[in-house]
Design a protein around this nucleic acid. Structure first.
Lengths: 162, 162
DNA sequence: CTGTTTGTGGATACCGGTGTCCACTATTAG
DNA sequence: CTAATAGTGGACACCGGTATCCACAAACAG
């Protein structure tokens, strides 16, 4: 663009209501950005180009992209004509990979009571309930890839938790 | 107890690692507290008695219980012999009810891009993926009741999202 | 009535996720 | 080489979820 680094254009408010979400904002950002990259079809996209499309403010987007690059999900190219690219083909990048890269992958092994004595053999009262939800989420995150997003497809295995 | 209101006994740290979680801490607290109440089998429990069992600090536990009471999930009785009781039988209290009471019910209708133009007819790229996850969670929260927790049972309908 | 128990209500402090900023390095064009 | 482009790295500010505190009201025991 024309030299301006931070246009300071407040994009439309994303969450007008209560900000309660299943995934953290950062997690959503990471998935949005990688999805757009996948949709771009291999050509490098700069953070400046990605920002208006994803609705993520440039400085924070840069930070998220950096994390994804450091974890091998993206490839970064500096200088003119540079930008960010998927490090692997879309079908080889699972949601899990993206979420883990930004540290947004929920800790599954932790019990609702957070006590060491709780495990599968000696479960706490909420243990079965938790594991069901956790399993549902884990299955979803593992079965979905960026290719599914681009092609609007469903994963091979259905997401279920029971 | 013996007059001490806040024992100030730092219970074992619940989340040593990164605090990334599927449900917010408050949401977990609410489910823990109501589950214990359900397990108590009708008898009123004071916040002071509930705190060590659930691992929730008394002051915050009190606040959570207050929200649950205000939303009709619990019944509160003051004075000696008082405490908190389930307002309805355990099988009539769904996880959804508990989560909504503390304002921890994720907003389902919101798209990953947060843009108004995204709906079922004109979905954004991530829309199918989101709705699948959201639906899985909603089904889980609606099908589970406190009775399931006490009896360690599974809900009638399996949790699935597809 | 008096004192104790137990929940109520709101003000306040803390902390980590979220978002911003700036100086710097790498790459390419000319 | 020089200038412009574009990502890197880390320090810092903000804000809302989390947690604490205190004065008060209700209910019960004696």
């Amino acid at each position: 663009m024309t030299g301006v680094r931070s246009p300071r254009v407040r994009l439309p408010v994303l969450t007008p209501g209560p900000s309660q979400r299943l995934l953290s904002r950062t997690a959503e950002y990471a998935l949005r950005a990688t999805s757009c990259l996948a949709a771009a079809g291999g050509g490098p996209l700069t953070a400046e180009a990605l920002s208006p499309v994803t609705g993520i403010p440039i400085p924070y987007l840069l930070k998220v992209l950096r994390q994804l690059t450091a974890h091998g999900v993206l490839h970064a190219q500096r200088g003119r004509g540079g930008g960010f690219t998927l490090a692997r083909p879309p079908e080889a990048i699972r949601f899990t990979d993206v979420l883990e890269a930004v540290g947004a992958s929920p800790v599954m092994d932790q019990c609702a009571f957070g006590w060491g004595k709780c495990n599968t053999r000696e479960p706490c009262a909420l243990h079965p309930a938790w594991s069901r939800l956790n399993h549902a989420f884990a299955t979803w995150a593992r079965s979905m890839t960026l290719a599914h997003v681009v092609r609007r497809q469903r994963p091979r295995s259905r997401v279920r938790a029971s």
